[in-house]
Write a protein that binds this DNA or RNA. Structure first.
Length: 593
RNA sequence: GGGGGCGUAGUGUAGCGGUUAACAUGCCGGCCUGUCAAGCCGGAGAUCGCGGGUUCGAAUCCCGUCGCUCCCGCCA
């Protein structure tokens, strides 16, 4: 080894020891006869002192050294003189008196700062990702990611789970996300698909009798990006036999609690995690992935608003639509312009408008609002009371169909929380969403679409509804939401042939289609399939939230840009015509004409 | 596929019709034996992403384009 110790580990107890360190020059301070170098390695930073009087050769070299040069030094750990201690550094009580210094490698001046956190253009970071990853904040994130994954492996292994790898080259599945395809050289005109998740394979492992399986699985989806979505991402894929919904949820809940408590300083808002039905979460938060770090819940005002003389509300309620609202704390003083901006947000979600009432402790009535004149004093009072609004609050009201109202108020709730600083970055709030509808009606195709996937079991007591009222049937599905993100989804699967065929029928899949696409699954299920279920937490999103980062690129070593490109390597790229010929592929200019 | 934001020395920003294109930091040179965002002195460094247009005059206004980013659609 070229080093005897790590930079970050040296303390007062090492004083007097001769050590050899190696790493990168983080900063340098040249005082002519005395040079200070901050030496950085993965473990931290150690101050080096190079004195002309005691080490003339090392001193001469040290004066030429620059940022990010790679050096090796040998010297004695000494306590810093009184008053020279740096309380900001874990190693701040000591320094290394260097006797010899070797330049292992010089470095060009980096294109951006390694030694301070500054917002650097994302394209530049990605182009020089290996330098970006050198920054302490990125190293902290990737180390946290490692610790989370190690924790998961240990936790599940200790509980009888076996980690099994499944193929990356698999079969296309037309439903769901767009597949990444890989052409087959040996089978002209045929393609593999990269897995969107190992869903089918983990169920087959249950048929195979492994009972408890997990995998840190890379998944691929060729869809457009978001801050929390990359074309390739990592899931903890997990499946268990002979379990019910509660078993899977309890396992994951306990694991998540321990991860937060043992690996982070975050404050867990609620333990155990709240369990909200799909109906309830939409009613209270307008979304199935609520941020529970703050309140500002949505309240239904349909009865009061419907009885008012405000035509927009009365007509909406008469038409079977709904009127709901939220109270933004302390926003009664918002200017007309600020309220208009909120209205634009609501309209972007399909709302036709945004009504508002400012709650004021005035003598002229409980609220100031352009629509106050359409309400009686009692109605206004009732609204303020039901909203739980205090003087100074701004009540924002949307009237429309339930999905539009939910979408608009969800957007307003998140936007306002962000502006008002309600989402405490030191807190983390999980909740389970259960009792999802098994199907969503696809009006275009005139059929039911599975709301999770087509192997999700209905609630056993809802099985009769499949024949009478499929839209009312609930699935044995469970999602885990955290701080406004969906971080896991799972279900108990169907292991009964008759129910599975009924589902295929409802989603418009005839027996021949089903055989074509899932023949291997259906055949396997005939050989003694245990009741089973599983879940798949997204590792990137989880680590993002644990690290307090705003997007998953910050916890992925080499992520893609929003345009699904790697700016460092230059991928994707054109390939040699010979490669294409071997793969029986011809590139067609789709932009032509 | 659609909508929004950003693009100015190596980096981060200011400037938003007429400036010698500013500031900080980094870089180069000099001074300096207790700094730790070291300090002081001096210097170099920008065809203002690219292309076109409007104008007497464009970093600034308009159109297009490229890149990054946020959002909608999409993501069983």
């Amino acid at each position: 080894m070229l080093k005897t110790h790590q930079c970050g580990e040296l303390r007062l107890e090492h004083a007097g020891q001769q050590v050899t360190l190696a790493g990168w020059v983080h900063r340098w301070r040249d005082h002519a006869g005395l040079v200070f170098l901050d030496l950085r390695d993965r473990s931290g930073i150690m101050q080096l002192k190079v004195d002309q009087a005691s080490a003339p050769e090392a001193h001469a070299l040290a004066r030429d050294v620059r940022s990010e040069w790679v050096i090796q030094v040998t010297g004695t750990v000494v306590a810093r003189p009184a008053g020279m201690v740096n309380p900001d550094l874990p190693t701040g009580e000591v320094e290394l008196e260097v006797s010899t210094l070797t330049v292992l490698n010089r470095a060009k001046t980096p294109p951006f700062y390694i030694n301070k956190d500054e917002n650097v253009d994302e394209a530049l970071r990605m182009r020089y990702r290996y330098l970006d990853l050198r920054r302490p904040s990125m190293q902290r994130n990737l180390i946290l990611r490692h610790n989370v994954i190690r924790f998961i492996r240990n936790y599940l292994s200790d509980r009888g789970f076996i980690e099994i790898e499944t193929p990356i080259l698999f079969k296309t599945t037309p439903e769901g996300a767009r597949d990444y395809l890989v052409p087959s050289r040996i089978h002209p005109g045929k393609f593999f698909a990269l897995p969107q998740s190992p869903q089918q394979l983990k169920q087959l492992l249950m048929v195979a009798g492994y009972e408890r399986y997990f995998q840190i699985a890379r998944c691929f989806r060729d869809e457009d990006q978001r801050g929390d979505r990359q074309p390739e991402f990592t899931q903890l894929d997990l499946e268990m036999s002979f379990v019910e919904r509660e078993d899977v949820m309890n396992l994951i809940e306990d694991m998540m609690i321990r991860i937060v408590e043992e690996l982070t300083d975050l404050e867990l808002v609620t333990k155990p995690f709240p369990r909200l039905s799909h109906d309830e979460v939409l009613r209270r938060f307008g979304t199935d992935k609520p941020d529970l770090r703050y309140g500002m819940e949505i309240v239904d005002l349909s009865d009061i608003a419907g009885a008012s003389s405000f035509r927009v509300f009365a007509d909406a309620v008469a038409a079977g639509n709904t009127v709901r609202a939220l109270a933004a704390p302390g926003c009664a003083s918002y200017s007309r312009k600020q309220i208009d901006e909120l209205g634009v947000l609501a309209q972007a979600e399909g709302a036709k408008g945004l009504a508002w009432m400012a709650v004021e402790p005035g003598e002229e009535g409980p609220v100031r609002s352009p629509i106050a004149k359409y309400f009686s004093a009692e109605q206004l009072q009732a609204i303020v009371e039901r909203m739980g609004a205090a003087p100074g609050d701004l009540i924002l009201i949307v009237a429309d169909t339930a999905p539009v109202v939910c979408a608009a108020l969800d957007t307003l709730r998140r936007t306002l929380a962000s502006r008002l600083g309600l989402a405490d970055p030191k807190k983390i709030a999980f909740c389970w969403i259960v009792d999802f509808p098994l199907f969503e009606w696809n009006a275009e195709e005139q059929r039911w679409d599975p709301s999770h996937h087509l192997f999700t079991a209905p609630m056993w007591e809802d099985v009769p509804l499949l024949d009478t009222d499929p839209g009312k049937a609930r699935g044995q599905q469970y999602d885990l939401a955290c701080n406004g993100y969906e971080i896991a989804g799972g279900s108990i699967r169907i292991h009964d042939r008759a129910i599975q065929e009924k589902i295929f029928g409802l989603i418009g899949l005839d027996v021949e289609d089903a055989k074509q696409r899932f023949g291997h699954m259906l055949e396997a299920f005939e050989y003694g399939t245990p009741p089973h279920g599983g879940i798949a937490p997204g590792i990137d999103r989880l680590v993002m939230l644990l690290a307090g980062e705003p997007n998953i690129r910050e916890v992925i070593a080499f992520p893609k840009t929003q345009q699904a490109a790697d700016l460092m390597a230059g991928a994707p790229s054109e390939v040699d015509p010979q490669q294409l010929a071997e793969l029986h592929i011809r590139v067609v200019d789709s932009t032509g004409g």
